[in-house]
Write a protein that binds this DNA or RNA. Structure first.
Lengths: 114, 114
DNA sequence: CCGGATCCCTTGTGATACTG
DNA sequence: CAGTATCACAAGGGATCCGG
């Protein structure tokens, strides 16, 4: 019903175990998506590189999102004991499993061009 | 580099034409995702049904997100001139193109169970 | 009686300045 | 360089109200 040809494959799991919601609880903000996108494209990035690529993000928000993503084991943080400090972020093996989502986001976005 | 096996397929388009960002500009909030999920599963829903299914959303936010999604042509709104009023929301053909994204969100969410 | 609009208050986010 | 501190504002939750 409703014209949704995939409804038999996309079901809402009973009471708070919905896998879609679980995914969104990990990555469900625009900045989180874009940070992950950066790391998918470039592999490893420093704090300032992410900040430069994501025009408009404030350092406060960037720190907060990086911390959340690290706690969720989606990205990993490597601190080099140098002066000046160097910190590199990259996707974990777990985080790389998000790539199909991003490819579909890209595919949809490409349909917006015309 | 970086261990991201799809990096050759997932590229950042030059300067503000990134299709991933374009997608996120349309649906990039948790509530928007969840409203769309509801309509993908059930096809057509009334305002109060969406509100009941999305435990925790406020009427203010629900109205705002519905309005945005309608303006983006992702959902359509049908008002029945009855008393008491009845308003039904459903995905547009365009909105149905988002389904692959949600299937991948579901697939990823299912890997979180263990 | 349903679909919102309005009000008030809390929480999140942006900009800028600043520090180890 | 990689963040934190601070302030101002926007977004969101919750209750209440109201026109059709």
């Amino acid at each position: 019903m409703g014209g949704c040809f995939l409804f038999t494959r996309l079901t809402r799991s009973p009471s708070k175990n919905c896998p879609i919601e679980a995914s969104l609880n990990l990555i469900g903000s625009k900045w989180s998506f874009l940070i992950i996108r950066e790391l998918m494209i470039d592999g490893t990035l420093r704090y300032s590189e992410i900040q430069r690529n994501l025009e408009g993000i404030s350092p406060r928000t960037l720190s907060a999102k990086l911390k959340l993503l690290e706690q969720s084991n989606i990205i990993s943080k490597k601190v080099y004991p140098e002066v000046p400090p160097r910190v590199e972020y990259s996707l974990t093996k777990f985080g790389e499993k998000l790539e199909p989502i991003f490819l579909e986001l890209k595919n949809f976005g490409l349909t917006l061009q015309n």
